[in-house]
Design a protein around this nucleic acid. Sequence first.
DNA 1: AGCACGATTGCGGGTTTCCGCACATGGGGT
DNA 2: ACCCCATGTGCGGAAACCCGCAATCGTGCT
Lengths: 241, 241
Amino acid sequence: MKVLIVEDDHLHRSYLNEQVRAALPECVAVIEATDGIEAERLAREHSAAHIVMDLQMTKRNGIEAARTIWREKPDRRILFWSNYSDEAYVRGISRIVPNGAAYGYVLKSAADERLKLALRSIFIENQCVIDNEVRGMQQRSVTPNTGLTEAEYEILMDIALGMTDRSIAQRRHLSLRSVQNRLTQIYSKLDIYQVTGRHRDDGTFNLRARAVTEAMLRKLLNCGALERAEVDLKTWLSEKG
Amino acid sequence: MKVLIVEDDHLHRSYLNEQVRAALPECVAVIEATDGIEAERLAREHSAAHIVMDLQMTKRNGIEAARTIWREKPDRRILFWSNYSDEAYVRGISRIVPNGAAYGYVLKSAADERLKLALRSIFIENQCVIDNEVRGMQQRSVTPNTGLTEAEYEILMDIALGMTDRSIAQRRHLSLRSVQNRLTQIYSKLDIYQVTGRHRDDGTFNLRARAVTEAMLRKLLNCGALERAEVDLKTWLSEKG
DNA sequence: AGCACGATTGCGGGTTTCCGCACATGGGGT
DNA sequence: ACCCCATGTGCGGAAACCCGCAATCGTGCT
């Protein structure tokens, strides 16, 4: 068994190395990468290795790297090891994990023991391990009247990218009016109307811009998610011609 | 001498503790805080302690904490220890550092030696130490035709918060038209017009939303900056009545 | 089939955004 | 005093945004 560690922080990397060796004595080699690009390369070279990966790296973030890795080999086992359980991360991962693939999500604040357990569960038992805190988030994000549907989330990303209603309609194959309907739903779910506490819309906020801010503050969106969405948008733009 | 360490990551915190003790044998006590709120409280209790602080913490980020700490005692010495040298951080700090206060900015990727040197320079010599990479950023951000002026940056924050032109005008004591002028300047400095590569503005982008995205992607803005701006906005809204 | 309920779409119109044009203001320079 | 240039302002208009209203479509249930 081989393990590929992807983590840009030096301290965390050596800690991970240590933990992997301790938890998996059957592991014969530990490879290290310090950013997403290197990770993709090394994953190709060591196609049998299991992967432990940080989200949030400078050059190419963990989710992007995971996406290309899984695209090339959907049965790779990946353990995500992250500081936060932001909805942006959770949604980002759940939309790229291949059908039936084994993966894990452990927070960096977790105890050594939890990390070790997760390492063994995923890499040996081939079983998913999702941190409780992350699971809770996942639940909350699908409660009706509050959580955004996948379709709404998609549109939210589009306005976060700065697209006009018209181009969103074109991209998502909807009419202009439908896009605007989705927008008003997003506005109401994010409580954009009563941000000031007073009666609705006293004209201090531009709704679409405010929705993006609100989503950021709630960790529904973050910079990494924007970067990913941006590359998707670029490819769409280029194939649209 | 006492030192207060503010850092939410366990590994980094113990590393910092170790380095502080090694670099400053004259230090008689090391206090630790794991988030910005705790930091503000402990800083009040230990009013003589120097501070080493991470930016980017969950509960209250480093810049917010530093702001309140400096507001209460402008001659505190603070060493910021951060992963990145994003323009958002640099601008955020430079607008809160009191006149003549000693502070430092060291990247986490720096060698042990550099950190030790910075610790001694600031806490003993009372001398500013800014990482070269950060200095470079600072320079780039003031080059004309590219870097945003302070006034423009302010307006950029306002649209990132989702404010309308009108409310920005009111807040910044400008006419509607002046706000819009500033906006077009921001758009041109951020190259919003030729994002698609083709001729200007084919209608795929909403300029104000796109400017925010672009700023995020360029690390001119980040979530922490938004949070800070948001509390400022809230106080303005409430005192406006 | 018949019905219900939600999502989609078109229409109309009030508001906001974006910006070209023109004019006032307000310091440096010579 | 004079000019120059950068900034701030007003006007007007094309486009985009936001949304109430009403008709249509689609899917699932009985």
